[in-house]
Amino acid sequence: MPAPYYVSPEQIMQEKEDFARKGIEKAKEVIVLEYRDGILMVAENPLTTVFKISEIYDRIALAATGLYPDYEALRYAGIQGAEVKGFTFNREDVTARWLANQYSQQIGAIYRQPDAKPLEVELLLCEIREDSSSNNRIYHLSFDGTFWEDNEYTVIGGRADEIAGILEAEYSEGLDLSGALQLAARTFETIETEVDEVDRYQVTAETIEAAVLDETRNRRKFKRLLPDELSEILSA
């Protein structure tokens, strides 16, 4: 009987990392911006059936990119876990910090499993502040389960670094909703025309998906921006 080939752990992990990175490099981007009344999430997404941004719980939303079945499974698990926890204890006990840790453990466990494919995902778990004495939270989760906290603005997806570079120069604190959405739209237009050298690219209500966590709303802070609202802001 031939002996099984020996593959070093370094090589296994390197191959997994390469595999996951290759998947995410192709992924469309999602921009998340803090604005005056909360957190705005904008994705380039011409599809109306598959969402990249969704409501998880009262103050928590998930922006995801990568392989759809992978992040959809995570979205489902997040909603289910949050609802079960909130039903068992209390709604205020469901926090993004808890959920980010849960995701981290799940994603990390799958990444380390010898016979499993790593999840090709990048996530931003956003939580709007409870009141003026606390802060908004944006947790950035990677395909290997590591996560860190971002603030003000952040980007996931293939050209995340280039887009973050543009935002670094353009972003300012205290933008209102239309200001923040126009900034996101402009950024997408810049990256498409300048970096990718497309002749002319225009963001419209049909090419993007956008949602907010809005402090001024009641219990459920999440709201998807409807095509009419998007058109109105983008054409202003």
């Binding site: 489902y76 698990a77 926890k85 799940q106």
Partner: peptide
């Protein structure tokens, strides 16, 4: 929170709790 099996996916919360 556990990653549920694909065939356990449901939009019925009662089923989740059961």
């Amino acid at each position: 929170m556990v990653f549920s099996r694909a065939d356990h996916r449901t939009s019925d919360f009662l089923e989740v709790l059961q």
